[in-house]
Simulated scan of single mutants.
Amino acid sequence: MPVSPATDLSDASTSHDEAAPQRRSRRKQARPGELLDAALTLFVEKGFAATRVEEVAALAGVSKGTLFLYFPSKEELFKAVVRETIAGRFTEWNEEFERFSGDSAELVRYCMHSWWERIGMTPASGITKLVMSEAGMFPEIATFYQQEVIEPGHDLIRRILQRGVDRGDFRPLPMEYAVYSLIAPMIFLLMWKHAMAPCCPTSAQIDPIGFIDAQVDLLLAGMQLPKPPRQNA
């Protein structure tokens, strides 16, 4: 039986009324992510001290009061940004380490390339420079970064290197310092990207992948055990 025009209008009105709360619910669920994206953009661009929560809220399209519903302070907002973009990824990185079946040289190369693709090429790459430059003024965020990023990062790299030693791929290494051999080139790239690269001419720019590959080759040359001479048949 045909539906009358009146019924059509009633159904459309009901459908619209039902859809509105759903849209509001989806919008509410999206707000924390939008606030974190806005905060990351401003923290990297302006630094922790210079970023105001009003600016973050405005960039995310909400009020300052709404921001404080999700994050009670600028410090808590910063911590959430770090957890979302870097610290929260250690679970996946550790799982990849456990599953990796290649040799130790391949693992080191994969580790450094993967880190650049997932952190170095993203806006989160600016967080390290922020922490290093503002640690003296805000020791609490430096302590948080130490606990949430540096310590688990050191632990993962130590396990990568120890795996190489245990498998006979690498010579015995002073682990407490050897971890920095992988970390230092990465920090250099981050500092270059966010400090010097914007000021340098094209001819002076560094190709990150080329730099990483050169560093890996140098590191492996220093870490790998020499292969025994081939016996003549």
Score class of each variant (00 low, 15 high):
Pro72Lys: 04
Ser73Trp: 02
Ser73Cys: 01
Ser73Val: 04
Ser73Phe: 02
Lys74Phe: 11
Lys74Asp: 08
Lys74Ala: 09
Lys74Met: 07
Glu75Phe: 13
Glu75Asn: 09
Glu75Leu: 14
Glu76Asn: 08
Glu76Pro: 03
Leu77Arg: 15
Leu77Ile: 15
Phe78Ile: 15
Phe78Cys: 15
Lys79Glu: 07
Lys79Arg: 09
Lys79Thr: 05
Ala80Ser: 10
Ala80Thr: 07
Val81Lys: 04
Val81Ala: 08
Val81Thr: 09
Val81Tyr: 06
Val82Glu: 01
Val82Ser: 02
Val82Gly: 02
Arg83Pro: 02
Arg83Thr: 05
Arg83Gly: 07
Glu84Phe: 09
Ile86Gln: 10
Ile86Lys: 06
Ala87Pro: 05
Ala87Gln: 05
Ala87Thr: 08
Ala87Trp: 06
Ala87Glu: 06
Gly88Ala: 06
Gly88Glu: 05
Arg89Val: 11
Arg89Cys: 12
Arg89Met: 14
Arg89Glu: 14
Phe90Ala: 13
Phe90Ile: 14
Phe90Trp: 15
Thr91Ala: 14
Thr91Met: 13
Thr91Gly: 14
Glu92Gly: 11
Trp93Arg: 11
Trp93Asp: 07
Trp93Ala: 11
Asn94Gln: 12
Asn94Leu: 11
Asn94Ser: 12
Asn94Pro: 11
Asn94Gly: 13
Glu95Ile: 14
Glu95Gln: 15
Glu95Pro: 06
Glu96His: 15
Glu96Gly: 13
Glu96Met: 14
Glu96Lys: 14
Phe97Thr: 07
Glu98Leu: 12
Glu98His: 09
Glu98Ala: 12
Glu98Lys: 11
Glu98Val: 12
Arg99His: 14
Arg99Thr: 13
Arg99Met: 13
Phe100Ala: 12
Ser101His: 13
Ser101Thr: 14
Ser101Pro: 12
Ser101Trp: 11
Ser101Asn: 12
Gly102Thr: 07
Gly102Val: 06
Ser104Thr: 00
Ser104Cys: 00
Ala105Asn: 02
Ala105Ile: 02
Glu106Leu: 00
Glu106Val: 01
Glu106Asn: 00
Leu107His: 10
Leu107Met: 10
Leu107Pro: 03
Val108Glu: 02
Val108Phe: 04
Val108Pro: 02
Arg109Met: 01
Arg109Ser: 04
Arg109Cys: 00
Tyr110Ala: 10
Tyr110Ser: 06
Tyr110Asn: 05
Tyr110Cys: 03
Tyr110Phe: 11
Cys111Glu: 14
Cys111Ser: 13
Cys111Ile: 10
Met112Val: 08
Met112His: 03
Met112Lys: 03
Ser114Asn: 08
Ser114Ile: 01
Ser114Phe: 05
Trp115Ala: 08
Trp115Lys: 04
Trp115Asp: 05
Trp116Gln: 03
Trp116Ile: 03
Glu117Arg: 10
Glu117Thr: 09
Arg118Cys: 01
Arg118Gly: 01
Ile119Met: 00
Gly120Asn: 00
Met121Phe: 04
Met121Ser: 11
Met121Val: 09
Met121Asp: 10
Met121Thr: 10
Thr122Glu: 01
Thr122Pro: 00
Thr122Phe: 00
Thr122Ile: 00
Thr122Lys: 01
Pro123Leu: 07
Pro123Ile: 05
Pro123Gly: 07
